[in-house]
Simulated scan of single mutants.
Amino acid sequence: MTEQEVRKGGGGKLSRTETVTVRLDPKLRYLAELAARLHRRTLSSYIEWSIKVALDTEDLDSDGGIRRTIGNEAEFLWDVDDADRFAKLALRYPHLLTHEEQVKWKLIRESGAVWRGRYDGGPLNEFTWSVNEDSLIYPRLREYWATFCAVAESGEGQDKLPTWNRVDPNAPSAVPRSAPPSRSPYRSAPPPRSAPPKLSTGFDDMDDDIPF
């Protein structure tokens, strides 16, 4: 069944496609048409098929001996939401980001509002997080996606970015210790000494007149 017959039939709904204008010199176009005839395809179908084949040969990286190409990473990299699609690319292949995308990713990385984390228990008990696939809160990123894009593009409006509790609000407040009583730099005069008790001689109880 030809492509035209499939379109005329009442089969399933065709998936949404994007129209791309490609300029080919006469020689390349002619040779591509010949190749399309070999595969019994239209020229546009042959070009689409050729791109898919080429994606399987484009290496992204090699992690632990595992070869990763754009083709075999397609299911991870693609998402219908712009925010999710951008985050997946930035998390796993940040070297593919353009300069404008790097600016946007920096804003997202430094916003604790879109990451799962914990309070570190330090002196200030600050909120900390790790930038990885499991920590990102995708629904919240989608909620503020337009704001992140606008701030990254204009460099203004940082006050509109999402906020978070940088310090644990449930942590007990530190109670300051009472300061020790201050001491005067001047010494107080020593108390006056009392007169020593009078020693008894044994004759204190006798009369002054002594008879002889």
Rank of each mutant, 00 (worst) to 15 (best):
T2S: 10
K8G: 12
G12Q: 01
K13S: 11
T17C: 13
V22D: 08
D25K: 05
L34A: 09
L38A: 08
H39F: 15
Y46H: 11
Y46F: 15
E48L: 12
W49N: 04
S50R: 03
S50I: 05
K52T: 11
V53K: 05
R68G: 00
I70T: 08
L77A: 00
A83I: 04
K88V: 00
A90S: 02
R92E: 06
P94A: 01
H95C: 11
L97H: 06
L97E: 06
H99G: 11
Q102P: 07
K104T: 11
G112D: 01
G112I: 07
A113T: 07
R118W: 14
D120W: 15
G122Q: 06
E126D: 09
S130R: 00
E133G: 06
E133A: 10
L136N: 07
P139A: 05
L141I: 02
Y144A: 03
F148S: 07
A150W: 13
A150M: 03
A150P: 01
A150T: 00
A152Y: 11
G157R: 01
L161Y: 07
D168Y: 13
V175N: 07
R177P: 13
A179Q: 08
R183G: 11
R187F: 14
R187W: 14
A189E: 08
P191R: 07
P196Q: 02
P197T: 00
L199G: 07
L199C: 11
L199E: 02
S200Y: 14
D204I: 12
D208Y: 15
